[in-house]
Structure formats: C-alpha cells, structure tokens
Design a protein around this nucleic acid. Sequence first.
DNA 1: ACCTGAACACCGTTCAAGT
DNA 2: ACCTGAACACCGTTCAAGT
Lengths: 228, 228
Amino acid sequence: MPTRKSTRRSKTYHHGNLEHALVDAVSEMISERGNWDCSMRDIARRVGVSHNAAYSHFPDKTALLAAVAERAFEALRSATAEAAAAYPDDPEEQFLAIGMAYVKFGCDRPAHFRLMFGPLFADGDWASMKAAGQAAFDELRTVLKRCAAAGLLPESRIEELAISAWAFVHGLTTLAVDGRAEPFVRDAKTIMQAVRIGSYSMLGGFNDPRVSAPRTKFSVGQAVEHER
Amino acid sequence: MPTRKSTRRSKTYHHGNLEHALVDAVSEMISERGNWDCSMRDIARRVGVSHNAAYSHFPDKTALLAAVAERAFEALRSATAEAAAAYPDDPEEQFLAIGMAYVKFGCDRPAHFRLMFGPLFADGDWASMKAAGQAAFDELRTVLKRCAAAGLLPESRIEELAISAWAFVHGLTTLAVDGRAEPFVRDAKTIMQAVRIGSYSMLGGFNDPRVSAPRTKFSVGQAVEHER
DNA sequence: ACCTGAACACCGTTCAAGT
DNA sequence: ACCTGAACACCGTTCAAGT
C-alpha cells in the first residue's frame, strides 16, 4: 500500500468538483437565508476548503454568483416550459400557465429571484448568464406566437406584447417577493388570482385597435417626455 | 469679541443639519455612481465629518438608506400626481400619463429606483418608508377609481386592476433599468411605446367578462398550485 | 446632545509558497 | 493545475472620551 491516505482525501476536489460544489453551496445558502448576503469565507467554510480557494475557479465573487444565477435561469426556463407543455392545444391556457409558473418560481425562491434580476450584474456583460435569461423569455415569446396564430392577438405586435406580458408577471413577482403588493396580494391564492386577472385583461385588450396603432395618440408622450 | 471662532465653525452641524446633510449626500452619491454601494466612510468624508458621526442620527446604515428611499418615494408620488393632474377631465389619459411618469422616474434615477425596491428593506418593518411607497401607489388607485366612474372598468375590481397595472409599469421599469428588456426596449422612445401598448392592452381588456369573474376557470391554478 | 479617535471583528482580494 | 497561509486595504459598528 504505497498510496498515502492523507494525500488521497485532500485530493477530492482536485478533479474539477470544486467549481460545481461552490455553486451548489451558494445556491443552498441563499435558499436557507433568504438573501444572497453570504461571504466568500462562509461559502468556503461550508465546502470545507480554504477561504480563497474559489479564486482558482472564479475571478471574483460576482462571477461565482453569476454562475448561480445562470443555473437559476435554466431552472426558470424549464419551469415555464413545463407549465406551457401541459396545454399543448390551448395557447390561451399556455399564456396563463407560463405566467403563473413564473410568479410561482419567484415566490418559491425569492433570494434566487432577487439575485437573478438584482443590481449585481448591472455593470459588466455577463453574456452567458444573460443568454440564459433570454432563453427563459423565449418561452413566453413562443407561446405568444401560438396565440397570434390562433387569432388572439395581431402578429405584427408579438414582440411588444411579449415585453408587456413579461413586465407584468415580473413586476408582480418583484412586488410580492418584497412585500409591496399588500394588502391585496397576501398569499398564494390572491397572487395567482392577480396573475389571472392581469392576463385576462391583457388578452382581452390585445385586439384593441390602439394596440396595433399606438402612434396615433402621442400627446402624453410629449407631456412626460423622456430624455436620456 | 468673547466668542471663539473655532468653536463657532465646528458647531455648524450641531443644530440639526447633519441628518439632512447625510441624506442629501447619499442621494447625490448614488445618482453619480449609478448604484447604492457607498460606504459610511465615503459618506462621512463627503459631508466633512468623522466616519462614525452618522450614528448619532441613524441607528445603522440601512436606516440612513431608508431615509433616502423614503424621500425618493415622495418624489415619485409628486411626479405621478403631477402627470395625472395634466389631464383633469380624461381618466384614460391620466392612466397613461401616470404609468409613463412612473417609468420615466425609474429610468432617470435608476440607482434610487433600485434602492427603493431593492432587497435591503426586505427584513424589518420600515413603516414610514413603506407608507411613502403606498402613498405613491394610491395615486394610481385614485386614477383607476375615476376610470371606473367613467365606465372604463368594473368598480368591483379596482383593487386587483390597480395591482395589475402597477405590476406592469414596475416590471417594465425594472427590466429596462437593468438592461433586460433588450433588444425591443432600447431607448426612451421604445420604452414609452411599450407603456402605451401595455396600457391600451389592459384598458381594452378590463371589461373582458373573465376579469370580473376569473374564478370560473380554475384548472391552471391547480396545475401550478403555489404552496407557502 | 452631538461628535471624535481608537479599536474590534469581519470582509474581498492578492501573492508567494506548497503539492 | 489547484489549493493554502499570511497579508493588505477596507468595511460597519462600538465605546470611551471630549465639548
């Protein structure tokens, strides 16, 4: 037995596991705490490694958190895709289901949701993480294309309507997660009802003639003109 | 001349100005930097006071930032109220104007907007700051009441529709400020167009019969039921 | 009552050194 | 190539002391 056991155990993370283990640890920690305010030293302690070992795999703390956010975006994408897949022949139900899945994701994982859309990645490009976010958004876009094909809304405005619908569920989740939507949105039932009402409201209004030709009325835009 | 001048100048902040000066300094700093990642020591340096003087007026850093957020909420409230006041006889235009003012506020002061709705105040109560937030929301509620009086939407659903509309403009602002709404929302013109389209879509759909009786269709809610 | 200087525990990051 | 120990500059907060 020439192999030294001490060397053996200490090499557990020498085969590429540490990167994965770090992302796992952070993901668990922010779930437990409810916020992403954990230190590199805490993370390292949890994984059982020295406090600066992470710098062999990530250039800085933000990069590690970006990896966590990227994986969370993938989970969001599959959650919404799965919800839509439950109604293969009914695009309107798909539209409702995808919105509800989005809100549910945020309410179930508030700390992840805040991290994903938080101010941390406002600077820098973080291309692959933002691509994962766009992939999640594409699920909604696809459903709206099916809605358009079914005559529920005009083809020419799919992009704008996708943004509107996304903004609605995103804003609702944000407000709910931060406790700003009270007193009306108090629990799971009321927030899902809000999704339903907002979604029906939008679906009912997509064929409003002003949606397809919004430029005809520009007075307000001048009144509160935006300079940037 | 018995008064000692050195004492005189050093007492400038002894008459209650420091609290105000601190809030001013932080507000300016986050505007300049684009984020609220400034240290107590930086703030104190800017005001010209020792690095821990702020603790005579605020129990901790979060409390100081909450005071900044509270003042920003008051600014948001007057911005939206002013926008609505421009159309005293047209509730539909008021609805559009208030949404645009909200989005404009966030795009003009992204760091303030992120602070106001950020994760910092998720724990604790921060009653007076959150009350200022509710006051801003009340402006929208008031406009929707006028819309209901004009027959644009059912009286019984004002509360839910207010939440929906707020979620929409809030989500749009958040996505725009964090650069997530691209490629469609790129600049001031396209984002205001998105507000317009979303608002018309909601207005057009508020009278959809399903908005007033959303409970008749509950299949989706069961499929993605929310446990919390 | 309001502010200061020194101190404490903690943080993200760097770097030379070990295997 | 991957990890460690020591070190650096910085941070929020506390506290005894000054006026």
